[in-house]
Nucleic acid binder design. Structure first.
Lengths: 153, 153
DNA sequence: TCTTTCTAGGTGACATGTCAACTACTAAGG
DNA sequence: CCTTAGTAGTTGACATGTCACCTAGAAAGA
């Protein structure tokens, strides 16, 4: 009686495990990060900023998949804690750059080894190279098809 | 100069695309659901409740990967909107069952077809059966290794 | 029994995310 | 120029999630 629009048994199994895994994995990584004083979200922002130096708010929002409002709020919170700063943009008076501060740099340098180790432990060290490749393919396929498509690095 | 504890190029690529995909996919599904008056989280709770009838709060929390506090808060919010109700547990006076109401049942019946179609459109119709199988394997592998391991259905 | 410990769940404070405006500026077309 | 439309970013209200702590009741063992 399987309605063709419903999910197959295999799909349902994958959906259940995927949604649960995603939730638990990020919760775990957040907790592991918490004693460093950074949230998982903070870490993502700082990681990007160390790569590219200063960036326009909209640009970094797109990179990490945030809506502009969320980006603005999060930038404000991080700014209050001294991790980043806003810098007026010379060519477009509406805009600002987001820039990492020394404190921000220190914080991510401190947090990175443990965080990366945990991503390894809980994920990549458990998977074969083929599985990693497939996960990358799957993720990019889904991203490309999604409406406001952002593209990962 | 690749630090052996850092991620390889392939791993980093997969990590970036996976985290971004996950964020965008669930954001998209949430938005698609929103006109029905249910959040993605509401949907998950109601879906489980329709399967199993009433369940202890701790039990459903474990099933969907919530901490007990989050479960309690979310149950309260859903209760206020009339989607679920708490029922005193006879055998253990500390505990309660969570039970779906008629309004809750009506809400998920209304929302389900569109939601499932969207999960299909944005995900499963884009993937091969092998990819789906691999995603399931990956997810279960990660879940099993995670500290407080919950197991999907 | 009677203490000591454990468990179910709730609570309040606070961090985070979403939505719908809103301001200030830029850009485009007459 | 001048009007109109679009864009960058902010804001406030509210939904959601986390954390540390609390209460009541169950369970275990002397």
């Amino acid at each position: 009686m399987t309605n063709p629009r419903w999910l197959s048994e295999d799909e349902l199994s994958a959906w259940m495990s995927f949604t649960l895994m995603q939730l638990q994995l990020f919760a775990h990584l957040g907790k592991q990060l918490s004693p460093t004083g950074l949230s998982f979200q903070d870490y993502g922002v700082l990681a990007r900023l160390t790569e590219v130096g200063q960036v326009r708010l909209t640009e970094i929002a797109e990179m990490i998949g945030y809506e502009k409002s969320r980006m603005s709020h999060h930038a404000t919170r991080m700014e209050k804690r001294g991790l980043v700063e806003r810098v007026k943009c010379g060519t477009d008076r509406r805009g600002s750059y987001l820039r990492i501060t020394d404190a921000g740099r220190a914080a991510i340098v401190d947090a990175a080894p443990g965080h990366v180790a945990e991503v390894r432990n809980q994920m990549f060290d458990l998977l074969t190279p083929e599985q990693v490749k497939t996960l990358d393919d799957i993720s990019r396929t889904i991203l490309e098809h999604l409406p406001g498509k952002a593209t990962p690095a």
